[in-house]
Design a protein around this nucleic acid. Structure first.
Lengths: 352, 352
DNA sequence: TAGGGCCTGGACAACGTTGTCCAGCCGAGG
DNA sequence: CCTCGGCTGGACAACGTTGTCCAGGCCCTA
């Protein structure tokens, strides 16, 4: 980050309590009393102070207040990408809880970059946020230990903290993925592909584990060509899906590991169906995706739906419990997922 | 908001520069020099200071720094709903620009409530944000005048400021809507319905105006039963769409005024097509929506796409230009829209 | 060796607010 | 009329940092 602070513009010379006091002809502390609604000011004096405030356009400087009081009434949220609806919903839920506690929210996107996550989290600590909700990008959060010891309440959401023991709120990635794949198996599929995020991402690894568990539970072998963890880059996903669908023994169903992968896979399948219209009809491929996506209902997309609002709300509520002074040991909450059967996951495999 | 600040926990007694100085056996200002990378400290002294910093887990208190420096290196963003992908994208774009300027972003959702917008914006001003990007919920922003005079740079995005003259960055709602409706007319439609947001919302009014302009340009009459501005509540939208599609002379095409209305309309049309399968086939209804939606390409949805990232980026860049001291009169930027023809808008009307 | 300049380090005030404490004033009771 | 108590208002320090200014020591040169 560039050096951001220059010392010149002094807030454009905003009036201070001292200015208000001078104009109203009272003492500094009297103005403070009026502004904060403290008792001990006669109504006449209060009126004069209020007039001076309005005349000068005074607004209390919360920075100074915070410095004096020791609490900022601000919490920080480090998420992955504000523009991703999934994280947007988490952010919104955190915000609502914060608002209910009279607290502001500073947030920033890590853009999946561990270094940027750290830079952001520490910048928030330097602002002395009272607490922090972190959606990890990296897998080593020891850098936060000094801050947490110093009193910054911290809750990790969506993914676990790395190398430290801390409060976490997660979705049931393993169970959700296992249920989704089992659903496909129940509808007759035996060759099922898995396209997911990088295995370094905890949730991605868990979902892959769920996939393998479901296959194993059903006694089905897993051909490693069916398993494609990697980036969520559309090109990578397109290539992976295309590869699985070609060859002598293509998969008959796909399980996609998160919303971005699902969106790309849907595009690939849609294009395939459309282009196949001219020649031999393409066998439809079943699809179950982790995460719901907008209009998934209209598209008939079967998904394992997380509850991002619950994720954010739970994390924030736990944060405020910590801020209120709870000293219980770190808590690990898991939020269940729901399978929404809407068509794409119930397509049977083509008869051989 | 509840009274948020209590004075007890004093940041959990974090070490200050004074503590570091004592431990390192140097003066306070020397620590400051090291922390800020200022010259004038021998390498030996610097090493001792750094050791003390690490040992104590010191982190500079930016609140105090800000108080001294007069600039917070923070900007505020008041938007409508963090969980709405459209605003999420704007937020993300603002964040990227802020980041490039070494600035943090505090944001909050107004939830379309003018009072909440004001409360939020003024809270941000009390935090002494250097600047403010506001996506208006209300239509009277005179409450911000004292703040702006006092030096808070302010840019309005997506909707214009109410009753004050200020920088704005808007999408071309009128032109976009006119183009969208003209597109439907060009494909043979004459009875076209408009379902939009409340007319008190500036963009909604503009889009309705665009609809009327396109109809008038084509010499087509507008039956007022085809025009349904109102809330974006799904039930309201469902009822409006259903009403337009029934009766002796139903509309053959729909223009929907924003992403939420579009999503609901798509659901209604999809349900209609599905249920009609058993009986007489339902005539397909053409649809053009304002705003793109995720997977709109797969659904074959013709839309007037805004560029939310450009909206946010432009607003933020202009904000930083103001912060750098530009004194030009308020600027009003309009960002163009693009018609994405993907199928739903090119369906011809049923032959009579 | 003496003088001058530079380099290093520290004392002090200030940013705008709030908490503590005390002074002055008023009315009531002796 | 005096005293005591309560109420109002203000002076002062402190929060943690940075900017200003100055003192002392060192090295270099004459």
């Amino acid at each position: 980050m560039a050096e951001p602070l220059t010392s010149e513009p002094r807030y454009g010379n905003r009036p201070t309590m001292k200015d208000v006091a001078a104009r109203a002809g009272v003492g500094l502390k009297t103005v403070s009393r009026v502004v904060n609604g403290e008792p001990g000011v006669t109504s006449g004096t209060e009126r004069r102070v209020r007039e001076a405030i309005d005349a000068l356009g005074f607004r209390r400087n919360d920075s100074a207040r915070v410095l004096r009081k020791g609490r900022t009434a601000t919490i920080g949220l480090v998420l992955e990408d504000l523009a991703d609806p999934f994280y947007g919903q988490i952010g919104r839920a955190v915000e609502e809880v914060a608002r209910a506690h009279g607290t502001l929210l500073i947030n920033g996107s890590s853009a999946r970059d561990p270094e940027r996550e750290q830079e952001l989290a520490l910048a928030l600590c330097a602002r002395r946020v009272d607490g922090l909700v972190v959606i990890p990008a990296g897998d080593d959060h020891r850098y936060l230990e000094p801050e947490m010891r110093a009193g910054v309440a911290t809750v990790f959401a969506d993914r676990p903290a790395g190398l430290i023991d801390a409060d976490t709120v997660l979705s049931d990635s393993f169970g959700g993925a296992r249920d989704g794949v089992a659903h496909l198996i129940a509808h007759g599929h035996r060759r099922i592909g898995f396209v997911g995020d990088r295995p370094a991402v905890h949730t991605a690894a868990e979902r892959l584990r769920g996939y393998r568990a479901a296959m194993e539970d059903a006694g089905l072998p897993v051909d490693e060509r069916w398993v494609a963890p990697g980036s969520t880059d559309p090109e990578r996903v397109t290539a992976a899906v295309t590869a699985m669908l070609s060859g002598p023994e293509p998969v008959t169903a796909l399980f996609t590991g998160n919303n971005r992968v699902t969106v790309t896979a849907v595009r690939v399948l849609a294009a395939r169906t459309a282009s196949g219209g001219g020649r031999a009809p393409v066998a439809p491929v079943a699809l179950v995706g982790f995460d719901d996506v907008e209009l998934g209902d209209v598209l008939g997309l079967t998904v394992i739906a997380q509850d991002p609002a619950a994720l954010g709300r739970t994390a924030a509520e736990h944060l405020f419990r910590r801020l209120a002074g709870t000293a219980e040991p770190p808590r690990h909450v898991v939020i269940g997922t729901r399978l929404l059967a809407r068509g794409s996951g119930e397509t049977p495999p083509p008869s051989p």
